[in-house]
Design a protein around this nucleic acid. Structure first.
Lengths: 208, 208, 208, 208
DNA sequence: GTCTAATCGAGACGGTACGTCGGGTCTTTGA
DNA sequence: TCAAAGACCCGACGTACCGTCTCGATTAGAC
């Protein structure tokens, strides 16, 4: 009686050293080269690895770079500790989101991968999973919390609000001017959206 | 009294037939091929033209395709006739904006060019000029009109609102699911943004 | 005790099929096209081979054609069996030398390669090795034999004689008229050179 | 009674300044560039001349360079003053012939044109006329004079002797080693050929 | 003085080929 | 079976020239 899943596939097991070497090389190239100057051949040569060892495990350049990005470069957004100031939370979240792409390496990599995602529908899904879905989830938490503590209107169209704020983020990102995604922009967004988000005051008072 | 502009440069003048042939070929290829399957060589061969005749006038594939797009494919947004219903105008504008990319050809081309814009900073500027700047201008007109007729709040942060709405548009566009940019989404955007845009009612309650 | 020469270099070994295919294609093209109408691209396409597979192993068109020539076209001069008639041997040798270029294919190829050798000093050395050096060696054998059996003068300036006879051969060859290198010309050369080569008769008069 | 040749064709006459400019440019390029690096385009650009003005009067690069060579570079062999020492004359002639190609510019140009002559049968005729025919004539004069004054044998096969000596010259030229065509080689040739050329002494005495 | 005709500089044109790069696959030896 | 190495076919790159063509401008003799 054995487990249906083979406890160990036959043959030489995958070498983790090779895997790491490939990701290291990719991450290293990302630091100095623009995404489109990177090629599988360069990664393989830099990693002292056969090209086949890349193609065996990944689908192509975008795949490898995405892996290197998530394991080597990606600035993980730390979990948000919700406070009792929902607008402050939102502002913080946006600031942090913007800050996460202030590193040119991160920015350039995302642009390269974004480009690839536009050209390759299959890769777009992976790209979306890494770069978009997780952010939406975090976004949602922030908004939900605001609603829960009564500072955001109960009938908020959460998805659309995320489309708007997230959209503004991506829009500026792909527009390419590097200075745009700063704290001031985060503040502008919150300020402009406040009337759309804020729960109506029951006793007619405007914001304190 | 002669014009200071040189009446005619020396040498054989540029052949418009060649130019048209190149743009025709590009536009034709765009109809059947994805952007990344198009190459200068294919354009030249389809257009029965020497490659040099392309490189002489354009910088590369993206440049040519952009030209073909603007002259052959681009769905020009007709000028908006502002009405006395500013929210209706906004909704109309968004619907039309979304409709303009509902044609798969247009959508695919924009995605390809967007990809190129991410990879080539120089091309990004051209891309921005064609795809972004003009839309922002039209957007601004709609918002300014709403302010002028008193339906939009006077202190509206126009630029940020455009970043939000335009951002939502691009965000969905590059996310790639083709069904997203429909009239319902336009309506959702307007509905969600209404409190942020609407001029406060002088005598009391906002619209129920 | 192992051989110091690496028993086998790493990586996929060179494909002999590819090599043969390239040489076949080159030889085939030489049959129908003049040397200057042949291009690497044509060879590659005819051989169903990537251009890189040519550039990987040869330096350019001249290199490939030279290889094809030596392996496919070259009419090897059979080894001369020296007789006791040294002048007859010389005459035979010249006839055979001339006959070897009587095939238009050979002649045209040599002219093309000769042209290349004039333009590219590096290739000239290879050309010289294939077309000139070996002939000089054979020439030398014939002359040395004549000296050895006492029919050629002992103080013969072998190198200069070779320059003269070989020179006459090349001179006519590159002059291009195809009829010139015939048996009659060989006979003329031998007749004219005889007094310069023949060993002086010990007892008096030279041959009347 | 007018000349049958049209006294003047209609239209703008050919500009000699243009012609000179083209030849100057060609000659100038020959000084610094190898023949195969020269192109019609470079000549035209250097001469500040339209390409058509070259093609109008010459057939191609080889044609122009040949013209530039003959008018700008060619070292004219001065007419030989025959003396009463026919072997001395021959030696002088060869020395001068060899000296004429000792200038690298001359040598390189001749090699380039020789290459072209091998590739283009039509050009070969022009090449032969300029580089070969005239030398043969001079050669013939030297040999005829030697015969006339009784120092060369009366039954000399002049054409074959020229083939041999001229051949040796071209053979060394196209072999490319620059040091070969020196006075010593001229002397070797004369020495080796002497028995083949010298008129037999009537009274059995050997030379001098 | 036009008119006609050919030339001139300039440079665009359709082509062919260059030599290089990279993609993704295949074929070795060796672990 | 995996891995390093690297050859393989293929397609495209951007460049260089080819020889031809089309411009406006010019330079003559013919009318």
């Amino acid at each position: 009686m054995s487990l249906p899943t083979s406890p160990r596939p036959p043959g030489r097991p995958r070498s983790d050293a090779t895997r790491q070497s490939i990701l290291d090389a990719s991450a290293h190239l990302l630091e100095t080269e623009s995404y489109d100057k990177i090629s599988i051949e360069r990664i393989a040569s830099e990693a002292k690895v056969g090209k086949q060892s890349i193609y065996r495990w990944w689908g192509g350049k975008a795949d490898v770079v995405l892996a290197a990005y998530t394991e080597r470069v990606l600035p993980r957004l730390p979990p948000r500790a919700p406070t009792d100031d929902a607008f402050g939370d939102l502002d913080d979240f946006l600031r942090q989101l913007f800050a996460s792409v202030s590193v040119p390496l991160v920015r350039r990599t995302m642009q390269g991968l974004l480009a690839e995602a536009q050209l390759d529908p299959e890769f777009r899904l992976k790209f979306y999973g890494v770069f978009v879905a997780s952010r939406r989830t975090l976004f949602k938490q922030v908004l939900r919390h605001g609603i829960a503590i009564g500072q955001f209107r109960a009938d908020l169209d959460v998805e659309t609000i995320i489309d708007l704020l997230n959209g503004a983020f991506w829009y500026r990102l792909l527009s390419g001017s590097e200075e745009d995604l700063d704290d001031a922009f985060a503040a502008s967004l919150v300020r402009s959206m406040r009337p759309a988000i804020e729960a109506p005051k029951p006793t007619g008072k405007s914001k304190k």
